[in-house]
C-alpha cells in the first residue's frame, strides 16, 4: 500500500517562501492580538507580568534570604533570568496547545503544519522583544556601558529560541496524542524554574554535579552567558558559565543538546504531520 500525492502549482520556490513568510507573520500577529483581547491594559500586561514576578522574587530572595552570593548587581542578574524564562515558558506553553487550538483551520485547509508552531513561537518572541526593552532600560539606568562582546547576545538569544522551538514542537505533537501533557509540562516547568539558576547565582549551588547538569541545560548555559556578558563578571568569579563548570569548549555540549531537541522535534513533527488533521 502506498500513497502518492502530486500537486503542481504556479508558485516558484521563492514565491512559496514569500507566501509562507506572509502566513507566519499574519498568524503571529493574530496570536499576539488574541493573547490580550478584551483586556484594558492590553500589551502592557506582557511587560507587567514579568516585572511583578521580578519584584516579589527580588523582595523575598534578594532581601529576606540574601541570595546575592557576592553579586554586584543582583537585580539585573535576576531580571535577565526572569525575562528569558518568561519567554521560554510562554513559547512552550502556547505552542503546546497550538495544533489543537488551530484544529478548525487544520481541518479545512492545507498548509505546511510547521507554520503553526513557528507562528506561536514568533508571537512569544514579539512579547520577549518588548520585555527586552525593559531590561535595556534597567541596564541603562544602572549606567552599565555596552561592550563590543554584547554583539554575541543576539546569537545566544537565537540559541534560546531554537531550544524553545524544539521543546515546543515536541510538546505540541505529544499534546495531540495525550492531553495530559498540559499538567505534566506545568509541573516540569515549575521544577525547571528552580532547577535552573534563575533566582540564585550558580556559585551558591553546593554540588559540582548539579552545576554540571545545570550548564548542560541549554537554557542554563544561555542565561549565564548573557549575564556574564552584560555584568562582565563583576566581581570576577561571581557568575559561572559553561566554560567555568564544564571546562573549555563546555558550551559545545549544551549547544549539541539544544540541536538534539531542535532536530528531534522536527523529526517527530514531520512524522506526525500527515495525520494531524485527523487527530486534533
Amino acid at each position: 500500500m502506498s500513497a502518492a500525492v502530486e500537486q503542481s502549482e504556479r508558485r516558484s520556490l521563492s514565491n512559496s517562501l514569500a507566501h509562507q513568510a506572509r502566513v507566519i507573520r499574519v498568524l503571529a500577529a493574530a496570536e499576539f492580538k488574541l493573547k490580550y483581547r478584551e483586556s484594558v491594559l492590553g500589551y502592557l500586561w506582557s511587560l507587567l507580568k514579568p516585572l511583578a514576578l521580578f519584584s516579589i522574587l527580588y523582595v523575598v530572595f534578594g532581601h529576606f534570604f540574601k541570595l546575592r552570593g557576592g553579586l554586584e548587581n543582583y537585580p539585573i542578574y535576576l531580571l535577565i533570568g526572569i525575562v528569558l524564562w518568561t519567554f521560554f515558558l510562554d513559547a512552550t506553553t502556547t505552542t503546546m496547545v497550538s495544533l489543537v487550538v488551530k484544529g478548525p483551520l487544520l481541518r479545512k485547509m492545507y498548509f505546511p503544519r510547521l507554520i503553526v508552531p513557528v507562528s506561536t513561537t514568533a508571537a512569544a518572541a514579539m512579547t520577549f522583544g518588548i520585555n527586552l526593552l525593559a531590561v535595556a532600560a534597567f541596564i541603562a539606568w544602572n549606567r552599565i556601558v555596552p561592550q563590543v562582546d554584547w554583539l554575541l547576545i543576539p546569537l545566544l538569544l537565537l540559541e534560546l529560541y531554537l531550544f524553545a522551538f524544539g521543546v515546543a514542537i515536541i510538546l505540541s505533537t505529544l499534546y495531540v496524542r495525550f492531553r495530559d501533557m498540559a499538567p505534566i509540562w506545568e509541573v516540569v516547568a515549575q521544577v525547571l524554574f528552580y532547577a535552573t539558576p534563575i533566582i540564585y547565582p550558580l556559585t551558591l549551588v553546593p554540588y559540582h554535579w548539579v552545576r554540571v547538569l545545570q550548564m548542560l541545560n541549554p537554557f542554563g548555559q544561555v542565561v549565564e552567558d548573557v549575564r556574564a556578558l552584560v555584568l562582565y563578571d563583576n566581581p570576577p568569579g561571581s557568575i559561572l558559565t559553561a566554560t567555568d563548570v564544564l571546562g573549555p569548549g563546555g558550551r559545545l555540549y549544551s549547544i549539541a543538546i539544544m540541536l538534539a531537541f531542535f532536530v528531534g522535534g522536527l523529526l517527530l513533527f514531520r512524522h506526525d504531520e500527515p495525520s494531524l488533521a485527523e487527530r486534533v
Binding site: 500525492v5 503542481s8 481541518r107 479545512k108 485547509m109
Partner: peptide
C-alpha cells in the same frame, strides 16, 4: 488535508477549498 491510505492523486493548478461550511 487528509493523506490517502493508498492510491495516487495528481492535482494541476491552484486549489481553493471550501470544506465543511467554511475556511476555518
Amino acid at each position: 488535508i487528509y493523506q490517502p491510505t493508498s492510491g495516487h492523486l495528481r492535482v494541476s493548478g491552484a486549489l481553493s477549498p471550501f470544506i465543511e461550511l467554511g475556511v476555518g
